[in-house]
Design a protein around this nucleic acid. Sequence first.
RNA 1: GCGCAGGUGGCAGAGCGGUCAAUCGCACUUGGCUGUAAACCAAGCGGCCUUACGGCCUACGGGGGUUCGAAUCCCUCCCUGCGCA
Length: 386
Amino acid sequence: MIKFRILKRSRKSRARLGVIETPHGVIETPAFVPVATQAVIKTLTSEEVASTGSQLLISNTFHLHLKPGEDLVRRVGGIHNFMNWKRPLMTDSGGFQVFSLGFGMDFNSGKMFKGREDMPENLISMGSQPRNLKITEDGVYFRSPLDGKELFLGPKESIKIQGKLGADIIFAFDECTSPHANYDYVKKAMERTHRWAEICVTAKKSDQAMFGIVQGSRFQNLRKESAKFINSLEFSGYGIGGDLGDGVAGMNKVLDWTLPLLNDALPRHLLGIGYLGDMENVVKRGIDLFDCIVPTHYGRRGIAFVARGANSFDKLNLGKSLFLKDKDPLDKKCDCLVCQNYRRHYIAHLLRAKEITAMKLLTFHNLHFFSKFVENIRNKIKEGKI
RNA sequence: GCGCAGGUGGCAGAGCGGUCAAUCGCACUUGGCUGUAAACCAAGCGGCCUUACGGCCUACGGGGGUUCGAAUCCCUCCCUGCGCA
């Protein structure tokens, strides 16, 4: 189990400074959670990830179930041993894959709604199913986008798998709904997610901590209903999931509707968010944890996050030819191993030469940068600045 | 010197009389990415004009020809590779 202690509450906002004690050590919150979907931060060893300052990782039930299978992971002593990660770990339930491999793939869209012009004429309504999977009352029949293999994941299955994987914190199995879903669909899916949440609570036999997930998309009454319901169940913390509405404004609204209805003494995790620009905003609304693929995913595409002044940041695309002639480190003020030892022209070259080390160096730096960025936010709470 | 095979956009390589400003790939440029299907995806990539549909110009080694029409056929020159002297 875990224990969450709030060390300080901001007077200026709903931000909190805290620590989560887990069987694998302490997490200082607010914390950023790098995404290790397949039990790895792509391109890095676990020791390297630790040296970026990352406190905990989130891995994925769906992917690890597909390969190598939870039984193998359990046999080698659980996911910590398997990947040699000594610090806290969470596993996501597979609920996001209900969206990303389902309607997300069909509509070629992400879970954030970019604007009205993205909205198709026909919204997803109840009764419609994604092309590659079938969502039923009991769970979801997936079809692997890789080899077409079918597999079933429901609340019981997800919890059982996560039990075998053995992370410190697990998530209830939910349906992450699409921003293209209409009100009726979202409501029905949310109610089904609530029924699944109850099943997850009773199915859990391990002493892992489990977070319930609030759904309800961009609809205020559904979000509130979901927050109240999830709050009424025996969870160790909460995830805010699903479609967060129309950009940052939509996300803010969702957080303002839901967080005040959740038990204040438990940690709140905002699932899948974290552009750097979102972080402080989200923390001020009462979020303690958030995970995001951006530092790793963008790193592999040549993007470096660097400081601009004291409080802002830039996104550099090292793939651009001008960086071949740039002899600065990625970030002059950064004290990470990459910035201490390598320069932009070298990384730009490696990127063009398609050398994997380019991705490794960028991933390392980005994770370090994100860690520092959140550490800075913690300090601001400590100092009463936010 | 003779014989054979070739010379196409930054590279590589299709096309072999009209639908060719020229397939595909690479490179290059730009854009996208928020609980990872993702070392990925999309668009552009001779020049000029147009918001757009589209239009004009210059191009398939050089030159000349045949034809209504040539990257594609013929002649000639230059160059490259291989083989034989």
